[in-house]
């Protein structure tokens, strides 16, 4: 089977020009692949480069070498060399990203924040809102909050809005950056369920999870990031 994500020898170094051009190698020789319906969890201590790898797969960080192959609309695209427009197309059609923090847009209601990715794919506003509501209910966001912009919500509530937004669309790849970081046990269990459903739908996932219990429940395979440590 063709892997959804096929990374070979990817590397990343930050050059800090304001600090006398100091070079901070982050990762080197990053190589792994993810099959449809598989959840790969990146493991390793803080600072090992887990988030950087996730951001490289999303095109948020540039990749300085190697290849990040992704199955996109029926063919392989290398995100290490893709044009900005191609990366935008990949984010629209192929890769979703659930970060720890919601970058809240002022004045947009939580329900619409969650419904937005569906509207873009041609779903009607009523149906998108209905599905957004169902997901927010599952994640225990009380209905009285749905009409409010999430910027006023607690950290855990914002994270759940973010999770709902990330899980609502049916993209074939999902990147999860600590999706359960500030959630209580009940909501952690909901996220574990959502991940299991995505697996059944054939979605390929790469996750960073610090919680041992959640990691155990969602990981099909661990990739140890320390082996990609770029010695300075």
């Amino acid at each position: 089977m063709i892997p959804m994500i096929d990374i070979r020898n990817a590397e990343k170094t930050f050059v800090m020009h304001l600090q006398d051009g100091i070079r901070l190698p982050v990762v080197r020789g990053v190589s792994f692949h993810v099959a449809p319906g598989e959840c790969v969890v990146l493991s390793g201590p803080s600072g090992a480069g887990k988030s950087s790898i996730l951001k490289m797969i999303f095109g948020n960080y540039r990749c300085d070498g190697g290849m990040i192959g992704v199955q996109h609309l029926g063919s392989t695209i290398d995100l290490a060399t893709a044009e900005p427009r191609q990366i935008l197309s990949v984010r629209r059609n192929t890769i979703g990203y659930v970060s720890q923090f919601l970058r809240a847009v002022p004045r947009v209601a939580a329900l619409d924040v969650v419904a937005e990715p569906l509207l873009a794919t041609g779903v009607t506003r009523d149906e998108a809102r209905e599905r957004a509501g169902a997901l927010l209910r599952r994640l225990n966001i009380p209905e009285r909050l749905w009409k409010l912009p999430p910027s006023t919500f607690s950290g855990g509530e914002q994270q759940r809005v973010n999770i709902a937004r990330g899980f609502i669309s049916s993209l074939p790849i999902l990147l999860l950056d600590e999706p359960t970081a500030s959630l209580d046990a009940v909501n952690r269990a909901v996220v574990v369920e959502l991940v299991a459903e995505k697996k059944r739908d054939g979605v390929a996932m790469v996750a960073i999870v610090h919680d041992d219990e959640v990691r155990h429940l969602i990981a099909d395979r661990l990739v140890d990031v320390t082996s990609f440590a770029a010695a300075a």
Binding site: F14, V15, M16, L18, K55, N60, Y61, R62, P84, I87
Partner: peptide
């Protein structure tokens, strides 16, 4: 480049500044 890429991973000295 892509807006979030240039702002989150600026490469040139002036952009970093």
């Amino acid at each position: 480049g892509l807006t979030d890429q240039v702002l989150d991973d600026p490469r040139e000295p002036y952009t970093q500044l």
